[in-house]
Design a binder for these strands. Structure first.
Lengths: 318, 318
DNA sequence: TGGCTTATACTTATCCTGAGCATAATCGAA
DNA sequence: TTCGATTATGCTCAGGATAAGTATAAGCCA
């Protein structure tokens, strides 16, 4: 297996790195998305990938189970990135973080552990657009973004910056796009408007609301939220976050919680029903306000029956 | 940063691993998708992540540029997985592979290197459905899959296997889904129908057509193809593979080459034009058969103007 | 000139989506 | 008992997007 691209592996041990497994573990409780945090809510759970682990996912599952007392259900890989050795100098070994998105239910997690569930909008207040943004936050955000754009060297750059801010944050009559979680975080980081940026050397300014995290953890969380918001649109993953039986309104509230936006009730039901994602249990929800709702359960069959598609190509029949 | 999840890092050096960067480098030439290969077309280009690299992407770009003599354009991360130490025993250090998808043009790559461009359908003959499958291949595939299903212990398992095969391969009047590249590869691997499976210990049988690769490289390639096939539907990435000017038919042929399916010509143009992805150059294609076509170029502006969305939620206005 | 090939314009039926109206079922207070 | 508040659920309707095709234009070559 020679080849110009294949460096001599004799040097490999000198290039050894350590690999960390980081988890964005999500649950939705009473219409609020939660994430598992440790270290006084300032970090995502993470542990080293060890020899004993047969695979990366095995490693992740191993310590999450040890942590929560319950087996991990749905898991998917998010992203891998290398720390820019901010701790030590060139001598310190590189560290690689491999992040995962996991979906569970809060009540499935045992007590007596050091981890907590935190609301994810505590870390990203601007991402919750269900009731619109609080006027104060909207005002600060806009003015800070405008100031950042203005502070560019040339008018060309100023326009570019403002256009980028307007697109990602839905300003100037643009649509809000809930999937741009990571782009928004990275813009705020570049603009020096969040604590992590200041920590990493940006000019100190008054930062924007939203709890910071250690290292790149908030960036990883943003990646996880973005992935989840995109995925609920074309895969039936919300059901991983629902109890066995639920009303359509509860389902809707969960989707809204994740997306950070409100959906049209009647059309939402039509969508769910026409895709035959759920079936009635026959039971009726108790202790509710208003007309009692039917209870539904997820039709696990759909996973086997079809490979859910979303074609956007004008395919030809012949 | 204590926490039940955070193992003691004093042991980290004992858990050191090496990280490989693997590239699925794609080009489309004359309506055929190509990938860059080394080692007599049996491997994807790959190189170790080194201390000198500031980031993973930097590392990847570094050696790809060294290889092709041209800067790498569009790059995105694919997936990270850990080798199950198949080479040595428990003593051998874990190796992690971080794979990337890169898009270029064949003519941008310099000569005099050890790498080649190979047609990607040499590795996945069954993925090219543009002209339908060759009858012989279709027949072998179906009969082998049926045999595999039949060989299960119980009738329940047999039915399950056949259902899975039918869904992924579009049998029994099901639709062919071009995005299931990885699922198809993994099914064939499990069924022991490809050389890599036999190499890894499956019972020796006559394998199905399609060139094998070292290690997990064919699996990585499948991941890259799947990702690209999905992405061309909602992001304007095809244009990374096109020359500066092209006719709509050339664009269509490229899309078809990637998707492995034919598209409806008139509707394809309408789709492209209504999204305003291209603009006329004013010039006309030369030396063609039939009526000469207008030349178009990609409107780079769209990247800045909008964040292309694909909502599937019935959002509410209020 | 007629036949072959590709380009491009237009049509038609159908399905999907956004938006809203209308009615049903329950509870609690007047 | 009735009214109001609240949620559930059924249904309509217009507009836009899509699939599939027909028709015409514009080149080349025998």
């Amino acid at each position: 297996m020679a080849g110009a691209l294949k460096k001599d592996r004799a040097t490999s041990s000198a290039n050894a790195v350590t690999a960390d497994l980081v988890a964005v573990l999500v649950a939705v409780t009473e219409g609020e998305p939660k994430i598992m945090t440790i270290a006084n809510d300032g970090a995502l759970p993470s542990g080293p990938f060890e020899f004993a682990h047969r695979s990366l996912q095995t490693g992740l599952r191993a310590w999450v189970e040890a942590q929560t007392g319950h087996p991990l259900g749905y898991v998917e890989q998010l992203y891998t990135f290398a720390d820019r050795g901010r701790a030590g100098g060139a001598k310190s070994p590189h560290s690689i973080s491999i992040s995962y998105l996991g979906l569970t239910r809060e009540d499935k997690v045992g007590q007596g552990f050091e981890a907590h569930w935190s609301g994810w909008y505590e870390y990203f207040p601007w991402e919750d657009q269900r009731a619109g943004l609080p006027a104060s936050l909207a005002k600060t955000l806009t003015s800070r973004l405008r100031a950042w754009a203005k502070s560019a060297e040339t008018t060309g750059l100023q326009r570019q910056r403002w256009q980028r801010a307007a697109i990602t944050f839905g300003l100037d009559d643009r649509e809000w796009n809930e999937e741009l979680v990571l782009q928004r975080y990275e813009l705020l980081y570049e603009a020096g408007l969040i604590p992590e940026a200041v920590r990493d050397g940006a000019a100190a300014t008054t930062v924007i609301p939203g709890k910071p995290m250690t290292g790149d953890h908030r960036r990883i969380l943003a990646t996880g939220i973005a992935r989840l918001r995109a995925k609920i649109k074309y895969r039936p993953v919300v059901f991983e976050l629902m109890p066995a039986e639920f009303t359509l309104l509860q389902l809707q509230r969960s989707v809204e919680a994740l997306a950070g936006r409100l959906v049209h009730k009647q059309n939402f039901r039509r969508l769910i029903e026409q895709q035959q994602l759920v079936e009635e249990t026959g039971a009726i929800a108790a202790d509710t306000v208003g007309r009692p709702a039917k209870l539904f359960r997820f039709r696990h069959g759909v996973l086997a029956e079809r490979a859910i598609v979303g074609t956007k190509l004008p395919l030809s029949r012949t």
